[in-house]
Amino acid sequence: MANRRLITKAVLYLILILLAFMMVLPLIWMFLSSFKTGSEIFAQPPVWIPETFQWKNYLNAFNLAPFGIYLANSLITATAITVIQIMLSSMIAYGLTQLEFKGKAFLFQSMLLTYMLPAAVTYVPSYVILAKLGLLDSLTGIVVSNISSVFSIFLLRQSFLKVPKEIVEAARSEGANDWQILWKVMCPMSLSTIFTLAMITFVEMYNNYLWPSLIVKSQSKYLITVGLNQFFTTQGTFQNQWAMIMAVNVISVAPLLLLFFIFQKWFIKGVGDSGLKG
């Protein structure tokens, strides 16, 4: 019986390892390829470890396009959006969970309804609004057009609902006003959800391509996603370019991986806390 259980477990682990390997394989291939020559990348049979590590691929890539600026633009906009979005969503979630006002249910339902709309439907009106505000082709425009998120509001609302009523009442009777309750009680008590949300938002905004590509025209405002695509289209996808493309990809993925490793514990806890599937 014990043997059988052991075998089942072993098979299960084998499948999981295989799946995990399949997931991580492209990343490993990308990382190793960034140090290869063009011919090594396309060699048959495949070459895994380059003969000599081509560190210059990274330098060459940076010489071909201002990836440093793209990266900085992406990091700045994604960070700004994440911070502002979470602050604003927290305030709305607080209002939806702690304040009593007429039309509260209607307001929340309307918000959820907008979530059902495909993002592309809002592109034209959003574009017009941004144009009227004079925020086209600017990082501010990218930030402003992304600071509200129904998903963030919903997730934080669910998390705030879990804060016991007595805790809020205790804070209130200790003299705290709504603003203090939000930042000193609700948010610290929903920290794992906030971390998770911050991760999801950051990754989503960092990877955002279509919308920024519509509103940004000048190269100095490109995000890394737009810049990468531009790099493909202007430089072509010849064999000798691939090593540099891989190098740029490694650089663009690095912040996300770093973020995940730092906040891994919170992320997993947050996913568990929110009752969402990982």
């Binding site: 016991p164 007595e166 805790i167 009442e169 205790a170 804070a171 209130r172 009777s173 200790e174 003299g175 705290a176 006003n177 009680v185 610290p188 008590m189 920290l191």
Partner: peptide, 21 residues
């Protein structure tokens, strides 16, 4: 008068301590 301005302290049945502090 809002609760915060009444200058009174409430002790709750389930203590209502702030778990993060």
């Amino acid at each position: 008068l809002p609760a915060k301005d009444r200058n009174l302290s409430v002790v709750f049945q389930n203590y209502a301590l702030f778990p993060h502090l």
